[in-house]
Amino acid sequence: MFRLRTNLTDPVTFSFEGRRLTASRGDTLAAALLASGVFIFRNSPVSSAPRAPFCMIGNCYECFVQVEAMGVVQACLTEVTEGMQITKVSNQIDELGMDIKEVSKE
C-alpha cells in the first residue's frame, strides 16, 4: 500500500497485537500503523469482514482500535505515543440469551 519510511526522525515505539513497531513522533495511530505495513485494523461487527482506514479525517469510523488505558479510539484522530499498546477491537458477538434460566424455578 504505502512505502515504508526510512530513517525516522524522533522515533517512538509502540505495539499492535503484540508486534513491536516504530513511528515518527506526531504521527496519528492510523498513519503509524499503515506506515508499518498494518493493513487490517478491525473486523466489521456485522459480518466480521476486514476493515481499514478509509477517510482519515474522522468521518468513516473504520479505523477504530483498542488502546490500553484509553479504550476504543479513532486511529486517525489519535496521536501515537511512546509505549502505546494497541490491539484490534474485540467484537465477537456471542450467542445472546441462550443461558437464560427461569428465575422462579431456581
Binding site: 474485540s90 467484537n91 465477537q92 458477538i93 456471542d94 445472546l96 440469551g97 437464560i100
Partner: peptide, 18 residues
C-alpha cells in the same frame, strides 16, 4: 454493539439482538 451480555431486559436497560 458490544460483546458484553445482558440476558434479561430490565426497566432501565436492555440489550438488542444486534
Amino acid at each position: 454493539r458490544s460483546t458484553e451480555q445482558l440476558a434479561y431486559p430490565t426497566n432501565m436497560i436492555r440489550q438488542t439482538d444486534e
